[in-house]
């Protein structure tokens, strides 16, 4: 199981190779990439913070659970941290298994679990401000961008 939190670029090819197995008829690779807008605002870049040792522990637990739940041959999860530009890959999930259906189901499940419980945070940086994304509840305590300040 390839599990890694790193500041270095991450690759779908590496994850696909890592989960390859003679018993697998399907390898499904998901790339989470930095988008240039969020909620209608132009995003300059993202900065990811993480609790790396715990994040890897949670990612390993998710991969183990996915293997048991979906009968996977293998599962790889890579998350990048630090500054990421638009178009760069922040998350890679690869699963291998017998057939296509469970590869899609397992891949989606793993991505959802990563977003739910792995201790990683993203800060959006715009031309006129920045904000840590910590759920809708936290909006009030963040520094508002200049355009929203009165």
């Amino acid at each position: 199981m390839l599990i890694r939190v790193t500041e270095a670029p991450i690759s779908g090819d590496e994850a696909a190779r890592a989960v390859a197995s003679p018993a697998a008829g399907a390898i499904n690779v998901f790339l989470g990439v930095v988008r240039n807008t969020n909620l209608g605002r132009a995003v300059s870049h993202l900065v990811y913070d993480a609790y790396p040792s715990m994040a890897e522990k949670e990612m390993r637990a998710i991969a183990e659970e996915a293997k048991a739940r979906f009968g996977l041959e293998d599962c790889a999860i890579l998350h990048r941290t630090g500054r990421l530009e638009v178009g760069e890959t922040s998350l890679v999930v690869a699963v291998s298994c017998g057939h296509r259906r469970e590869s899609y189901e397992a891949g989606l499940w793993v991505v959802n679990e990563v977003k739910k419980r792995v201790p990683v945070w993203k800060k959006e940086v715009w031309a006129d401000g920045e904000e840590w994304i910590e759920g809708p509840e936290s909006l009030g305590m963040q520094q508002a961008p200049a355009s929203m300040q009165r």
């Binding site: 990683v120 993203k122 840590w132 994304i133």
Partner: peptide
């Protein structure tokens, strides 16, 4: 110590407590 814990969990000296805001990885 790297496991999610409840607010009423006992904390022993020498352990590590992380305050975890709502996560937003992916």
């Amino acid at each position: 110590d790297e496991e999610y814990a409840r607010e009423d969990a006992p904390v022993a000296p020498g352990s590590t407590l992380a305050l975890i805001p709502p996560v937003s990885g992916g």
